[in-house]
């Protein structure tokens, strides 16, 4: 269980996250939604210990440090691979440092996405870079797989392929936290949605709960975000000066 309690993060007086408390068990596929700058990336960076924060983040009751950090992996649109070594060299590096590295999964995904094994990462296309970033995160042998906008620059077919592979390979003890703008695309397969706005959690719901309330994820998100459907027509009226 990954537990976040009363997380507070400020950047030079500006509040990036406030009152964030979450419990994240193993075996969930979670969508993390919010506008740009809402705090999605900051939340992940806090979990990984990249930034200082106040509050408490624990994994199975322990603080996150070198002893248990291997159970958390991270794929980011900023890319965290090494630009000047090949895919195979990455595999060897990961294998050396992460004892639970899943070589079989790595090779399988490399084949599936048909990525070059001996070219340095710098020469990959953006789409290939994203795929490789995700492959590493999935192969590390982590129980918690954090993905921050992993598909910026991939086309839809590519993404759909990825979703299906993801669903097919995940083990029951693996949790994926997927931060994305592509709500409708992932709404079919996530099991839980966490909504974040201006640094606060404004919604946290499981798909089961939504099923019971007979709501769809998209309608729930629009509702929670106080999305005003008449916004567009109003704006058009204002712009064109038309009155009813």
């Amino acid at each position: 269980m990954l537990r976040i309690e009363n997380l507070l993060k400020t950047y030079g007086g500006k509040t990036a996250l406030k009152d964030v408390s979450l419990e994240i068990p193993r075996g969930e596929i979670i969508g993390l939604f919010g506008e740009n700058g809402a705090g999605k990336t900051t939340l992940m960076k806090c979990i990984l210990g990249f930034v200082r924060y106040s509050g408490e983040i624990t994994l199975d009751g322990d603080c996150i440090n070198t002893k248990n950090i291997a159970s958390i992996s991270y794929a980011t649109c900023e890319h965290s691979f090494f630009p000047d070594i090949s895919a195979t060299a990455h595999r060897d590096f990961y294998e050396e440092h992460f004892p639970a590295f899943n070589r079989r999964r790595f090779e399988g995904l490399m084949d599936f996405f048909d990525l070059p094994r001996h070219k340095v990462l710098r020469t990959f296309s953006t789409g290939q870079k994203n795929q490789f970033e995700v492959i590493l995160a999935l192969s590390q042998g982590a129980d918690y797989i954090l993905m921050d906008e992993p598909f910026a620059g991939n086309d839809i077919f590519n993404r759909e392929d990825f979703y299906k592979v993801l669903l097919g390979i995940l083990e029951p003890h693996e949790t994926v936290i997927l931060s994305t703008h592509l709500i409708e695309e992932v709404s079919g397969f996530i099991g839980r949605a966490i909504l974040i706005r201006k640094g606060r959690i404004i919604g946290d719901v499981t798909v089961d709960e939504l099923d019971e309330q007979q709501k769809t994820l998209v309608s729930y998100i629009k509702e929670t975000y106080d999305y005003r459907g008449d916004r567009v027509s109003k704006a058009l009226n204002d712009i064109t000066g038309e009155e009813e």
Partner: peptide
């Protein structure tokens, strides 16, 4: 070129 610092900081070694 990439933020490999993220990977280094995640390595389970002191």
């Amino acid at each position: 070129a990439s933020k490999s610092i993220y990977t280094l900081r995640r390595l389970p070694e002191k």
